[in-house]
Design a protein around this nucleic acid. Sequence first.
DNA 1: GATTGCGCGATTTTT
DNA 2: TCGCGCAATC
Length: 775
Amino acid sequence: MDYLEELNEPQREAVLYTEGPLMIIAGAGSGKTKVLTTRIAHLMAKGVDAFTILALTFTNKAAREMKERVEKILSGNGSSAAGREVRNLYIGTFHSVFARILRTEASHLGFPNNFTIYDTDDSKSLIKTIVREQNLDEKIYKSNYVLNRISAAKNSLVGWEEYAQDFHARNDDQHANRPLIYKLYEVYVKRCFRNGAMDFDDLLFNMHKLLTSFPEVLHKYQHKFKYILIDEYQDTNPAQYAIIKLLGAVYENICVVGDDAQSIYSFRGATIQNILQFEKDYDDVRVVKLEQNYRSTKSILKVANEVIANNKLQIQKVLWTDNTPGEKIILMRTMSDNDEGRFVADIIAEQKLRNHYHEKDFAILYRTNAQSRSFEENLRRKNIPYRIYGGLSFYQRKEIKDIVAYLRLIVNTRDEEALRRIINYPVRGIGKTSLEKASLIANQHQITLWQVLEQAAMFGFRAGTLNAIENFVIMIKSFQIMLEKHTAYEVAFRVGKETGIIKELFNDKSTEGVARYENIQELLNSIKEFTETPDEEGELADKGLGSYLQQITLLTDADKGDEDSDVVRLMTIHAAKGLEFPCVFVVGLEETLFPNAMSVNDREDLEEERRLFYVAVTRAKTKLWLTYANTRYRFGNLVQNDPSRFLDEIPKAYLEESFVGRSAAGAGYQPAWERPYMSQRDTQAKASVSGMASAKVTPTKVIVDHTPSAGFKPDDPSTFEAGMEVEHQKFGFGKILKLEGNSGNRIATVFFHKAGEKKIMLNYARLQVVKKEIG
DNA sequence: GATTGCGCGATTTTT
DNA sequence: TCGCGCAATC
């Protein structure tokens, strides 16, 4: 049992206490994953059957890492066939594990076993159609709002029936001038059912329904899972809580791991109460606190601890470390958001040289995605490679969703969202009017949209439309038949080919067109890989197209490798949870931005913002910068900021002098407002701050002609001139034909002229000079 | 059915 | 400010 030797005392206790309810409070960087994986390995080493162990995480990445590390411990322990054993473990995200169970038990609930999983976009678009059908005002019943209400209800296990009876919910809706939410909820649920689809929340809600409505199913899984482990317990919502409670009721070998100080997902329905109350849920709960941090310096931990200490809602603990005291935290104030970006980029460039850091050692963490712009621009200028996390995920891209929609329809013709997406894409003459008519018929007859199309001849469509519909139906059916004899990959390829989607993208030679074409290729490859990899034995193996489609909706961009590429990482603090970096910048520490005014309605919300700050700073191993800007553009308006209250909660002794008005950071930086250079925007900022009338900025227009080429070495774009080769992030390379108005490095509007196409209006922020043309 | 031009709104987002 | 979605066009 040499794996036990590597553990400290509380860690060992957490591993060895295998019987009975256990709560592990794992502070940031205290070796949580190590404990969890060792615990699983220990159970297996003791002879516990892998089939009986259930471990639930929130991300696919966490699940994957857990599997890998368990396997590693086991093989290090001399256990043969470790790999096969590990594959038998039920390790996965809440959503993927429940989806798998729901798939096998679907018939109990009246769902097809190849039910579609709706992502947020599908849900929103379905809500939009329903709102329209109900003749409600889409401005009032916005899909986002409605979905949030429904989602919150489901996460609290309030079904549509109860919701309609729920005085408080109804009263709230009445108050918000949206009294008919309950009705939309009902229609939405029924429509999902008709479509043979579950949304993300349904995977939890229906799992709970399955367990509570069918005692034999509950019995089966209660006895199957003898050991249950839950990661990130502080982020569970009431539905997850209830399911865990049900599943663990027989053996009560429930081990939850979490850190109340890192509960930052209340807006997704998570409740910190689950972890605060765990001790009351069972008799004899053992609590183990992992308080030794192995990640950060003493200064960094101090800052984290001091801020979080202001919270009332917490489990008492003190995170400590044996690590070096480290350097003081550098607090940097800049004049504008733009300067903030420039200084951060400067510091990264300098630190790289001075301390031999790599780009991947740096992370810039912000509260809102909109803040990424100034960092992006400045890193780009200095030629520092970076990557912004948290844009569109691969599977949310249009071209991917289009192909996937065809596949979804082939597998499950009840899937109305898929059908709507592609019924007239590529254009085949079934327009809005015809679709509306078909929908109406479907609703009247209480049948699916697909059934209407199948029997279109009965419903009096115009001859041309009827013909188009029949051809469409025949095409989809031919794909279905093909699926019986051919692999999913071949069918997908045929879909792309026969619909003309592949051809269309192939012919599009613009940068984005090429990228899209490549995305399609990547999709096809992933289908091939998933469906044609030989089966492993075991009950989990299911390599069909239906199974593929279910798992891709549960994937996110964060799941796709790319971890090792040497780039500076830019992301929101939420996205940074679970990660660590030698050097971290926590930026935009301004009151109303962070803590964010929109999310703070009461004391508890402020506490969550504090936890967010805690998460942010504890990502840092050795160096930490906290920055804020005096002025910042928000929604196009220049606003003045007060420093975040969190900064007042940090003892000054831990901060490096670089405070207001003084020279920044001791690292030799000249504060922005003392520097000669000042961009137009900064000038305007300064003018407005000091009360002068702000200078009016004349928009500069640039005409750009698209001339595809590659291989230019980027140059510092101090000014734009006619004749310059420029690169646009999205539209690729082009050439400035003509300058209108002032030249400078700020251009308000750009006309990007793609060959043979219309002019496109672009924004300056995405332009970069790649080659200066002489003469 | 495709194109254009205004008006509105704008956190965080593991699945 | 910027992007989207809708209504008004051809």
